[in-house]
Amino acid sequence: MPNSRRQFLGAGLSAAVAGSAISCGASNGASPWRFFTAEEGRTVDAICDRIIPADRDPGAKEARAVNYIDLQLTRPFKRYRKAYREGIAAVDAASRKKFGGRFVELPAGQQTEVLADIEKSSAAFFELILAHTRQGFYGDPRHGGNRNRVSWKMLGVPFPPIRGLERYDQPKVG
């Protein structure tokens, strides 16, 4: 946490109150994420990368689908928090069992094999992360994914579209 005791005193009473309250709200260990731990975030990122891989166009990793999922887990997806905690653990357990390493440590081919197993063994979690990855890749960037509108660029969908309206009464050239 950035605010040490010394900085506290330097900033005075009111700042101390506000400062501590504000930084507490953001605390999530050393994780850059809102809900995921740093480890979980890496695993989800890797899963997203397998679901929509990068090729000549960016994939779900570059689109930051993991950021979309993490953000939504503080909002309407709150109800899926448990499913994610357990599902991510299940993915790592399956990787260890099959290839003797954590999911993020495996080469892409083995990751795909693990996910294909998860699709059957933890179907509910797989359906969840599949849907959410697709949303984080193809959905609107305002929700934290589809960074720089990469999927829309891939599909050739101009944004924002140029679209006016015959709004004025003045005649135009023929």
Partner: peptide, 29 residues
Amino acid sequence: LPYQFMNQVPPWVPRWGQAHKDFVRTAYK
């Protein structure tokens, strides 16, 4: 819209991975 479309891939296209992305990219328009 892109998110709606990619849910409607034909039955012979896998639901994830490279093949799904390829299909969506080719077929969207």
